[in-house]
Design a protein around this nucleic acid. Structure first.
Lengths: 208, 208
DNA sequence: ACGATTCTACCTTCGTGTAGGTAGATTTCT
DNA sequence: AGAAATCTACCTACACGAAGGTAGAATCGT
């Protein structure tokens, strides 16, 4: 991590990060060309090296920023609530809102899930922060009896995944099925379904 | 598509397809090396060209086979049932069973969803067959009143996505959270949740 | 023998990484 | 204050490896 002194440098660094996220999201790590990232920023390729020593480091910075930002957004939502179910819905709302606002992040996470052994050593190096949020909220609900006992990762797989698909799939289901993921009506309709499913997933055994 | 006369050739072609699916699944189209595909089959790289004229054509053959096989498996399950909800559950069970048995297919689909414009022109060239299955079953349920009115693609995004994550994520949630997607107990536990969510998703407005 | 199948050898393209240079801004020294 | 020294933020040019595609020769099977 190179320390940047001047304001101009910091702005360039940020611009590189944003451009890189777009390029990596569109075509994935290997296919992504630093040339394209540079072009989007308006500089030459070798100048990227001034801020990020190589392609991998740039990618890591992008991924780290995504999960950190997503974690922050989720925390902000969660803090407004007390009951476990409300916290869980808030957490998932946070994810959904984040991904809709930043679809490039959605695609990068989507690719990450596809990889067999992402970041060899610790696959959760950057995502762990999010997984822990889910564990804390779900385990709390289970402890209070508000939720039935269920593995937190089932919640991730079952309902967390939907938001990713909602965002990534919007233009990929064929011209007559495509939709605008950011359209308020569309979004709220999907959010309703998401809440419905979440409640169903954690609801204690048949009440009556 | 080259016509293969002898049995030996047909076997080689099939072996190439299977090896390619594994390689493409692990690292994606660009990163995948034909060298590795050939090595897995036990032939030299240029021999692949005898069956598939280039990398893209090989990939397309893999993708086409995946969706065709998945469609078949789903149809087999659906045919055993009459009621819309049972058909829908059977369809999703078919997907789940297929993906668990063939995790390489899961990863390839996962990557496909991440792409911005897969197979320029018609993104649903090969997947359309699956999407139509869902539309038929869901629309039927809506028509009979068994289901509440909801867009079939919401079903795909909300519950179809879970099975992909269930398979792809199994070894990527960190060492202490990882599981075996093919383990019968694990699988049935997840299938129960999948059914629960599916029923919740399509259930008509609050009955009482 | 003759087509089917697989090989060896080579060419070409592409993209990253690296070496080294420079204009202009900033700080240091007197 | 103003010249000297240093640093920031880029640049051009090139070397290198990696991977896909191609041409044509060798081998296998019937």
């Amino acid at each position: 991590m190179k320390p940047i002194r001047h304001a101009r440098g910091e702005a360039t660094r940020q611009a590189i990060l944003e451009a890189a996220e777009t390029v990596f999201a569109e075509v994935g790590f290997t296919t992504a060309r630093l040339e394209d990232v540079a072009a989007a920023v308006g500089i030459r390729r070798p100048s990227i090296v001034y801020y990020f020593s190589n392609k991998q480091e740039l990618y890591d910075a992008v991924e780290e920023d995504i999960f950190a930002s997503m974690h922050h957004e989720a925390l902000g939502h969660i803090a407004l609530h007390d009951k476990p179910i409300d916290k869980l819905l808030a957490l998932l709302d946070g994810w959904l809102d984040f991904l809709v606002a930043r679809p490039t992040a959605a695609r990068i996470i989507q690719r990450l899930v596809a990889d067999v052994s992402p970041r060899r050593g610790d696959p959760t190096q950057f995502s762990n922060i999010l997984l822990r949020d889910v564990e804390i909220v779900v385990n709390e609900g289970v402890a209070t009896g508000d939720f039935r006992p269920l593995p937190p990762m089932h919640v991730v797989n079952a309902v967390g995944s939907s938001s990713l698909f909602y965002v990534c799939n919007s233009k990929q289901l064929g011209s007559n099925r495509s939709y605008d993921a950011a359209d308020p009506a569309e979004l709220e309709s999907f959010r309703e379904l998401l809440h419905l499913l979440t409640r169903a997933a954690v609801a204690p055994a048949t009440p009556g």
